[in-house]
Design a protein around this nucleic acid. Structure first.
Lengths: 199, 199
DNA sequence: GTCTATAGTTCGATAGAC
DNA sequence: GTCTATCGAACTATAGAC
């Protein structure tokens, strides 16, 4: 049966459209139209309608994007080179997709923060997992969980914020500046911990 | 005549609702309902309808928020204390308004980045003005326009991104961590420029 | 079980009463 | 000029044919 296939095509189309137009700005008709599925499929696979569909988009594309970023970070042995590479890659992906492929859940997160408790919690859990993963990654290079967590918050906030500015300006400058900033910040934290005292 | 008054009440209600629910998620009927204005007032004051209304919201609340942040930064002589104060104040404002009062145009910016060229350009211009203002502010403490501009991008990106995470988690932790990060980063840049060479 | 047709509501926008 | 009533087109959700 193409069931499983249809379900995933609907999810993929919904994810793409939510990223591009937001949650409220995307209609179910447009989703089935783009995925080539009949309208009834939505309520067959997602009985709770649009909210359940968005919930599954958040819980699939969110962790998926987190794994992608971690993979970029782990592709370089030097942490500073890895950070620089990850942000440059994010910038190239963004510019190469007509400034569409940024964070898959940020627009939804802002839209639903005060309108749907269910979806807000789902986005919060995704971000929390990202912070945990990034904290573990930074923990390999800086001592102390507080400093690693601070760098994790800084990196993710910087990435999310730079996505807002870069998409608005249709320029990779904010993302590249954000990459330089997190590289500088991380380098300074590493340097401070390697040197025990001051001359 | 209460005309001018009605127009501003509509603008205020629209700004409030766009921040809380986004652009696509807010209906014109809800805006006139909350502002107490008759429905026809929208098309009387904003002949181009919803898009023109959003355009004016962006071009009024955007610069207004930029001035607020610059005022917070200028309220302390020490730049690091000023940065720490501004981010702490943003965190308190957010928590004190049920996590509603974050950036007035970020949600709209993400929603319209690929759907309305007119509104995208409007948000881009607001962000560009913020970056210019912040670059001038940082320029008072670090030498070189490139470094000041990098810090300006970093500060604004960090603020915007931390707003996303803090609103989703209903926690001020991301904003406070972002504040600590930009303080550290700025302090390091200032220190590096005060010391001419390395031993 | 898969899909179509449609109900019921709300949207942005406008015509026309006053 | 100010406002009300309503339009046509979306929307989400569902009932029911096949």
């Amino acid at each position: 049966m193409g069931s499983r296939n249809t379900r995933e095509r609907v999810l993929a189309a919904a994810g793409r459209l939510f990223r591009l137009q937001g949650y409220a700005g995307t209609g179910l008709k447009q989703i089935v139209s783009e995925s080539g599925a009949p309208y009834g499929s939505i309520y067959h696979f997602f009985p709770n309608g649009k909210e359940q569909l968005a919930h599954e988009v958040i819980r699939t594309s969110g962790p998926e994007y987190g794994r992608l970023v971690l993979m970029l970070l782990n592709s370089r042995a030097d942490p500073l080179a890895a950070l620089e590479f990850a942000f440059r890659q994010a910038a190239e992906d963004l510019a190469g997709t007509d400034y569409a492929d940024a964070c898959p859940i940020a627009t939804i997160a802002l839209e639903v923060a005060n309108t749907s408790e269910t979806l807000r919690v789902a986005t919060a859990e995704v971000f929390a997992d990202w912070v945990d993963g990034a904290t573990a990654w930074f923990g390999r290079f800086v001592p102390g969980d507080e400093q690693a967590k601070m760098l994790a918050f800084a990196m993710i906030s910087m990435l999310e914020g730079a996505f807002v500015l870069s998409r608005a300006a249709r320029s990779t400058d904010p993302l590249l500046a954000a990459g330089k900033a997190i590289v500088d910040l991380t380098g300074n934290v590493m340097r401070q911990s390697n040197v025990s005292g001051r001359p």
